[in-house]
Structures are given as C-alpha cells and as structure tokens.
Design a binder for these strands. Structure first.
Length: 618
DNA sequence: ATAGGGTTAG
C-alpha cells in the first residue's frame, strides 16, 4: 500500500464513504474493488479511510489481509489497534490478539474489553477473568457495561458464584447504572452457579425484559432440571406479548427433549413454524435432538435433510440420534460422509461416534476412531471419551480390556467409568471385577446408590443370594436408597407413571388382567420368562408374578388398553430394561402387531414384529 | 468506526 502515499487526493473521503457502505452491507466484493481503485489511482489515503478499510476486512473475516493493511498503515491510532485486536479475537486467534494487545502503548477501555471478551468467547474463561483483574489493578480505567457483562459471563461458565457475587456487589456499591446486557449476564451467572432463585429476583426486578432476559431465565430453569418452571415462563412470555426468537425456541426444544414429550416438542415446532424460525440453524438442530429423544427417529431423519446450512452441531446431533436408536452403522456412515464433505468434527461428535460403536458392539472401529480423534483431528480425550472406551469394551464382554484401559487412563476415572464397568460385570456375570469396581466407585462417589444396587444385582445374577442380601442390608443401614425403577408414557396431555407392582393407577385391575392374558399368550408363542432377572431368591411362581409386574410391562398394558389398534407405543424408563422385559416386549410387539418404542437410561429400543432394533445387544 | 448478554451435543 506504499503507493497510496504518492499523491494527495481530495477524493479520499469519497472512497472512505464507499468503503463505509461496503462495511455496512458486509460486502467484501465491493469493498475489494474500492480497495483496488484506491491502489490503481495511487491515492494518498487518510487515516479515516485506512481505518475503514481495516474494519472492512476484519468484519468480513479476512484477518490476514486486515493485518497487511494494518502493517502498512503510516499512522496507527488507538482505533486501528483496537480493530486489529478485536479482529483477531473474533476469528479465534486469541494468541495473536494478545500479542498485538501487549504491544499497544495506549490502551483504552475498548482495548481491554476486546481482549477480555475475546478470551471469554473462545472459552478461555480463566484468562478472561485474569485480564479483567489486571485491568482493575493496572489501569485507572473503570469497568463499563461491556467489561462487566463479559466478566459475569466468564463467571457463569466457570460457575464461579463467589466472584460473580463480588462483581454484583461492586455494581450495587458503585450504583452502577445497569443496562440490559449486564442484567442479563447476572441472570445467567446466578442460574448457572446454583442460584436460580436470585436469577428470578433479578428478572422480576427488570423494568423492561427483552428476549435475551426471557431466554436466559428459561435456560436457567432448564439447566437446573426445573422443566415445569421453564414451560410456565415460556407461556408467560407469550401471554405478555414478547416474541420468542430462534434462541428461545431452541432452548424450549431442549426442555421438550428433557421432558421426552413428543406432544410438547411438536407444539414448540408449530410455534417455530408460525414465527418462521423453524429453518434457522439453531432451531432445526434442536429439532433433531428433540424428535430423537421423544422417540421419533423418523421425524428426526426428516428434519435433517431440510437443513440449508449444516454445521458441526447438525451432524453431531444426527449422529448421536442414530446411535441412540441403535443405528450404529448408519451413524458411522454419516460421520464418514461428514468428513468426506470437509466438515470438522469436534470432541462431542466423537462422543457420538464412540457411542455408535458401543451400541452395536463395533470394538475395532471404536478403537480406530479413538486414535483418529487424537492423531487426525488433534482432539484430546475428555473424561467422556475415556468412559465411552470403557463402555465399548465392557458391553462387548471384554472386561479385561476394560479394566486395563481404566487402569492406564491418564486421569482419575470418574463415577461414570466405574459405573459402566460395574454394569458390564452384571451383564457378563463377573463377580470379582464387580467387587473392585463397586469399591472404587464408592471411593470416588460415596453414597452412590447405584454402586450398592449394582453389586447386589451382580450377586443375585450369579445366584449368590446371601451375599446379595448382605449388600442390601448394609445399604439400608447406611441409609442409601436405591432409585426406584419407573416407566411412563404420555396419553393426550397426561403422563402416566408406573412403578413395579404398581397399585396406585385407577385402571390397575384392568391393567393386571391384560398383562396376565398377554403373559399366557406369549408363553404359547415360545416366550420363556427369564428368572435370572429376578433379583431375589424366591419360588418360581412368585418370580413369575414379579416379572409380570415390572413397570415397563404395566405401562405397555396400559397403553394397549387406552390407544387404538396400530398406534405406536412410546414408553420411557429411568433405568435400563431387564432381560426378561426385553424378551417379553419382543413377543408382545408380534402378538399385538404394534411398534413399541422403549427409551431406557441409555438408549432406545424399537420393538416390531418380534424383533428389537438393538439386535439384543445393549 | 472498535467492545457486551441468551441456543443446539453423551
């Protein structure tokens, strides 16, 4: 650009204005042609023009060209420095942003805000807070609304309630005149670090609430498991005439996913269609997960091709959906397609791929992808990936490999990893390892009811009834309560919940009669009850009775009684399905000619015509 | 002219 300094030209302002227009439209092409004309004419550009040029390239993500322009600028003012710093920060080159920032002679509040928000937005929350405190220490500058909003957002991500509260206190002390963004960050900070009630107080005190405030609190409720509160708030939002946007709708679809309610999810989908937001990336990504988690993999499949722009989350959501429904090979094919089309997987995509391998028993492929993740995509394994690998080996019955892997892991195995080994021990009846795993699990997570229960169940599965009883007794003594197995299904707008031997439901007599009839019919078809699934030492006819009244069977009987022929039944369960239920439901699906979809703690089973989509591997 | 808040994944 040295040629631009040859002549002074009075039309510098004219070109500066042209650049301004390109800038406003984020139109890189027209901006480039203006740049070319400036060079061609040998125009001596003003600082104003050059700053506009710089800003244009930054806004249009051409960071390297921006840097060139920046280097060749004869005079750089603070504005130019700030622009290049924020350009680097926004494009994710945080280190380069920091290098420029460190070279600055004079830093104003915008410079500090650029570096703090740069770190924060790229996930370097600790560094963001470090810069924030350096700013307070080393400069005479006072934080403004931008600084505070970013710092609070970093506190939210780190769940640092203490620092968050200090910042809040500072704002009260200095009677800081808050603006929407800061208050909204406060809502998020409190709700993410365990103070949803405080978040609600702030929300209630707002004079005017924008979409972000509504969304922030809805998300807060959802993440704290308060789905009903989230739904209520969404209704209030609509009633008060506030218009949800794609962020709000994506969050509400996530609520539907947690509720695993197809009806609820469909309603949000309808709202999204009416507001013409259904095809936005965030909403359509969330739709895949919602339909999948509500049991309708078909609907999730139909949403996927409608995406105009598929991002990493789109692919990941679909891969995980397929994996959870037992279409492991298809999930892997989709992953390969994703790579072939030049998309970058992230660490969560790989969780999905490993889960896909686990659910269909593809041990070798799982090992291959685990290596590929580290070598090709340079993604460091997280605790989730380690647990996936343990699960991959364990479920396939390779308990020795699972144990070797968990012992060699570079991090301390968490409760999920040991819990997974324990579950595999029960399936593959390995008592010795189960004892080790239970012991280790209780070390990491004392009072884990699952550890006791799984150990007792393993004893039972191996026929060691006295040992099993001992574990149960010590559980009682320690006051550890086992999670009760529950199954539920939604009928019209009501959720019907069943426990084993449930006696509370108004239709109980009809349900029990139905189940007794089914039991006899499927036995005639060749069904053999799996007494190994009964976890107590009892007479065979009592065992028979117990099996017949497992919660998922009651839910199915209820569903059959209350829905028209051919309707698909969607049952949700909080624990894993037992062997007996799995076998029985296969027969039932054939007997009544219906599709029965059961979601258990880890995956979906599609029963149809006497077979299950998991091919009996789960 | 440069800077800020809310979403989707096991």
């Amino acid at each position: 650009m040295s040629s631009t300094q040859l002549f002074f030209c009075p039309v510098s302002d004219y070109y500066a204005n042209l650049l301004q227009i390109s800038l406003n439209n984020k139109d890189l092409l027209s901006g480039r042609s203006v740049h070319a004309q400036i060079i061609k004419q040998g125009l001596r550009a003003s600082a104003f023009l050059l700053n506009n040029l710089l800003n244009l390239y930054v806004k249009c993500w051409s960071t390297s060209v921006a840097h060139q322009v920046f280097d060749e600028m004869p005079t750089k003012n603070t504005f130019s420095w700030n622009t290049i710093v924020s350009g680097y920060a926004k494009s994710g080159q945080v280190d380069l942003a920091r290098a420029q920032f460190d070279q600055m002679a004079e830093r104003d509040i915008v410079s500090w805000n650029s570096i703090v928000t740069g770190y924060n937005q790229r996930g370097f929350h600790r560094e963001a807070l470090k810069m924030f405190s350096e700013m307070l220490k080393d400069s005479y500058l006072k934080p403004d609304q931008f600084t505070l909003a970013s710092a609070l957002s970093a506190c939210a991500s780190l769940e640092n309630l203490n620092l968050g509260k200090q910042i809040h206190a500072y704002m009260i002390r200095t009677k800081f005149d808050t603006f929407g963004a800061v208050e909204n960050s406060l809502i998020t900070m409190y709700s993410k670090s365990g103070g949803v009630e405080n978040a609600r107080e702030i929300f209630d005190s707002l004079k005017d609430r924008d979409v972000v405030a509504w969304t922030a609190l809805i998300v807060g409720y959802e993440q704290n498991g308060l789905n009903e509160d989230a739904v209520a708030l969404f209704r209030l939002m609509i009633r008060e005439g506030s218009k949800p946007n794609s962020y709000t709708l994506a969050a509400m679809l996530s609520v539907s996913s947690s509720l695993a309610s197809l009806d609820h999810g469909k309603q949000i989908h309808a709202v999204a269609l009416r507001l013409q937001e259904a095809s936005s990336v965030s909403v359509s990504n969330a739709l895949i997960t919602m339909y999948s988690k509500a049991g309708s993999i078909g609907a999730a499949r139909r949403v996927f091709p409608l995406h105009q722009h598929r991002d990493t989350v789109t692919w990941t959501s679909m891969i995980i959906a397929l994996a959870q429904h037992g279409f492991g090979e298809e999930a892997i094919e989709l992953f390969e397609e994703m790579l072939a089309l030049g998309n970058n997987p992230d660490h969560i995509t790989y969780v999905g791929v490993l889960v896909a391998c686990t659910h269909v028993g593809l041990v070798e492929e799982g090992k291959r992808y685990y290596n590929m993740m580290q070598k090709v995509h340079e993604i460091e394994p997280t605790p989730s990936h380690y647990s996936c690998m343990v699960d991959l080996f364990g479920r396939a019955g390779l308990l020795q490999e699972a144990q070797d892997f968990i012992e060699k892991m570079p991090i301390e195995p968490d409760n999920i990893a040991w819990g997974s080994i324990l579950a595999s021990c029960k399936v593959h009846k390995n008592l010795e390892l189960a004892k080790v795993a239970a012991e280790r699990l209780l070390l990491v997570d004392p009072g884990n009811s699952g550890a006791f229960a799984a150990l007792a169940n393993t004893y039972s599965a191996c026929g060691k009834w006295t040992e099993a009883a001992k574990v149960r007794k010590s559980m009682k003594e320690k006051g550890v309560k086992k999670d009760q197995g529950l199954s539920w299904l939604q009928l019209k707008n009501e959720v019907h919940v069943f426990g084993a031997e449930d006696a509370c439901h108004p239709q109980r007599d009809a349900i029990y009669a139905m189940m007794a009839e089914i039991w006899e019919e499927i036995k005639k078809m060749g069904f053999v009850p799996d007494y190994g699934s009964v976890l107590h030492d009892l007479d065979e006819d009592v065992k028979d009775h117990k099996l017949r009244h497992h919660s998922e069977k009651l839910a199915i009987a209820f569903g059959l009684l209350n829905t028209p022929d051919n309707t698909t039944l969607r049952i949700m369960k909080n624990l894993r399905v037992c062997n007996d239920c799995h076998s029985a439901i296969k027969y039932i699906s054939k007997l009544v000619g219906r599709e029965i979809i059961v979601r258990d703690a880890t995956r979906f089973h599609h029963f149809k015509g006497g077979v299950c989509s998991c091919r009996d591997y789960w």
